[in-house]
């Protein structure tokens, strides 16, 4: 009886395990394997040892992709979370049309990032400069996506527009867990809105804040669709994310092996960051 039960459980996980191993773990191993070769993705190849790894560390294009990706991910993560908290607080207050407003703020999440990026590219290229020059605002009268120093801002704006929807919902779920009595106690103590937020609300949604930061950061570190749609990595290579670099050079540049090495390094970086974030999270929960 017991054995039969165990066997049933085993059969429940075996198909998924096979699928997962074949299409997740095995490709990862392949990637690691080829990172020690000079494989182009086709034709013949040789082992080259650690050469690819040494080259990645001297590759200005790769390094600038790391720089851009982290700058973008950190800024977008912070902005998304701040904006989402405030929208969530607003939606959680005693307001009219709550359902409709909540539904509207969630719309961006159901749209394809790539298509939204194309729409935003049009806004940055045509609509904003038009408005800018008719209002005489020099700063936005040219296309910011064409300026290597400003193009990343366009990507951040799009990313925040898109990601705030989901994060707002997560915060709303967090706010819903707070007992109304806590607020009543705070208002009896004479706390103003600002104090209530910092002293009461924020500590209670803090666990959500940490999780949201980790999840949003991880998503932004993978940024691909937004960049393909808005800038294609340009001008120059100023908005090239790591995912985009690995895709375009790994497949388009015939650098399969070299970019695999880059991907392995990226993997290690992500793991280190995740472990670090989890440590911080654990410490906070222990408090």
């Amino acid at each position: 009886m017991k054995a039969k039960k165990d066997r049933a459980f085993l059969w429940m996980v075996v198909p998924a395990f096979i699928l997962f191993f074949a299409f997740h773990t095995f490709p990862v191993l392949q990637g690691v394997f080829f990172s020690f070769t000079d494989y182009k993705g086709y034709g013949s190849w040789d082992f080259t040892g650690l050469k690819n790894y040494f080259n990645v560390f001297q590759d200005t294009r790769a390094l600038s992709a790391y720089g851009f990706t982290f700058q973008f991910a950190i800024i977008a993560t912070i902005l998304v979370n701040i904006i989402s908290i405030f929208i969530a607080l607003g939606l959680n207050a005693n307001i009219k049309f709550r359902k409709t407003l909540r539904a509207t703020y969630f719309i961006p999440y159901i749209l394809s990032v790539l298509i939204v990026s194309y729409i935003f590219r049009f806004i940055f290229t045509h609509v904003l400069p038009d408005i800018g020059s008719s209002l005489g605002i020099e700063a936005i009268s040219t296309n910011i996506l064409g300026n290597p120093d400003l193009a990343w801002i366009g990507i951040v704006i799009l990313a925040v527009w898109q990601a705030a929807a989901f994060n707002t919902l997560l915060y709303l779920a967090g706010l819903a867990t707070i007992d109304q009595q806590v607020y009543e106690a705070a208002s009896i103590d004479g706390a103003n809105a600002w104090q209530t937020f910092w002293k009461v609300t924020f500590p209670l949604v803090a666990p959500f804040f940490t999780i949201n930061m980790v999840v949003a950061m991880k998503n932004f570190l993978m940024a691909f669709d937004q960049i393909v749609g808005l800038t294609g990595g340009g001008p120059g290579t100023s908005t090239e994310s790591i995912s985009l670099l690995i895709y375009t050079s790994g497949l388009g540049g015939g650098q399969f092996a070299y970019q695999s090495a880059n991907a392995v390094i990226y993997f290690i970086v992500i793991v280190v960051i995740s472990v670090f974030q989890l440590r911080v999270l654990e410490r906070r929960e222990a408090k």
Partner: peptide, 10 residues
């Protein structure tokens, strides 16, 4: 925690 790019090429 596994970034997609490492799987992408293979």
């Amino acid at each position: 925690f596994v970034p997609f790019p490492i799987i992408m090429l293979p």
